[in-house]
Design a protein around this nucleic acid. Structure first.
Length: 288
DNA sequence: CGGCAGGCGGTTA
DNA sequence: TAACCGCCTGCC
């Protein structure tokens, strides 16, 4: 089943979007396009920039899922195309000389509106972990226990297993995925969500097993529209010290709140991408 | 080999 | 309630 959608977009760069740390299921291909899956929809993503603005142009999505044709509504929402990122960047840039510089590295960043369950599983897996292995873990988990979602070329894509499915597994079942101690977190969280539903996140996000402050902030920002969230990980600590000379989680939180306020989540993404782009370690990772 | 990678849970004082 | 420590795993 082929569904192709086309959108005219601004403030858009697929590399910035898919490599600013918010998602783990997309791969860059040799021609610059991306292939991956969002929720139950495998897709190919193409972007053709216009001649005068490399962050504006035509976004084309080839949806390879079995989902019914919705006229592109899913992808419009997923890429947050209803939001004026130019306006957000202007507000942040006017607020602070330093964030202005960081934004220049990630002009095309947009915050994807991800599925809650997908974000929950992804960021539990992400803890004390590195990006290549996070991707491997999510793919392995989905291939072994998730439902088939569609194919792109020779590759079959699988959904992240549903809460009830995870709840039915044992740590022995999950051993081949090499999740380490995170396996137990996924099983217990799967059981909680299977029992209480995803609305449980609204009030008890931090009660879930394997969800601490950092993971909760990521889920809030990337799937719950809490755009003032400011997840603090080792990279953000690094960039805050380097650019602002601020150390300590409490100090960073206070600074982010008073400086970026309701736009904290957007600022965090620009800063995260900036430090990844300008640090030797980030370059090494991108070379893979 | 120790250190570390997008932290968390559990224990201790 | 804050500080500390162990933890699966894979890669440097």
């Amino acid at each position: 089943m082929g569904k192709e959608y086309s959108f005219t977009v601004r403030d858009f760069d697929p590399v910035h979007i898919f490599e600013c740390g918010q998602c783990f299921r997309w791969e860059r291909r040799d021609d610059g396009s991306f292939a991956g899956i969002a929720g139950e929809r495998p897709a190919e993503i193409y972007f053709e920039p216009s001649a005068d603005d490399r962050y504006a142009g035509t976004l084309r999505v080839a949806d390879r899922s079995n989902a019914p044709d919705d006229g592109g509504a899913f992808w419009y929402d997923y890429f947050d195309l209803g939001r004026d990122y130019g306006a957000i960047k202007k507000i942040l840039a006017d607020r602070d000389e330093t964030i202005r510089e960081a934004i220049r590295f990630g002009e095309g960043i947009r915050l994807l509106r991800q599925d809650r369950w997908e974000a929950l599983v992804s960021f539990i897996i992400s803890q004390n972990n590195n990006i290549p292995r996070i991707k491997k873990n999510i793919d392995g988990l989905s291939e072994l226990f998730g439902e088939e979602a569609g194919t792109i070329g020779e590759k079959t894509y699988y959904c992240i297993p549903k809460p009830g499915k995870l709840a039915s597994l044992t740590v022995e079942d999950l051993a081949p995925v090499r999740l380490g101690y995170r396996a137990r977190y996924l099983i217990e969280t799967g059981a909680s969500i299977a029992e209480n539903g995803l609305c449980y996140l609204d009030s008890h996000l931090c009660d879930l097993c394997g969800v601490g402050p950092k993971v909760a902030n990521c889920i809030s920002l990337f799937s719950m529209e809490k755009y003032d969230s400011f997840p603090i990980d080792t990279w953000v600590k690094q960039v805050m010290e380097k650019l602002y000379g601020i150390t300590g989680k409490k100090e960073i939180e206070a600074f982010a709140e008073e400086t970026f306020g309701e736009y904290g989540g957007f600022a965090q993404q620009y800063l995260f991408y900036y430090i990844r782009e300008t640090s030797a370690c980030g370059d090494k990772h991108l070379a893979h």
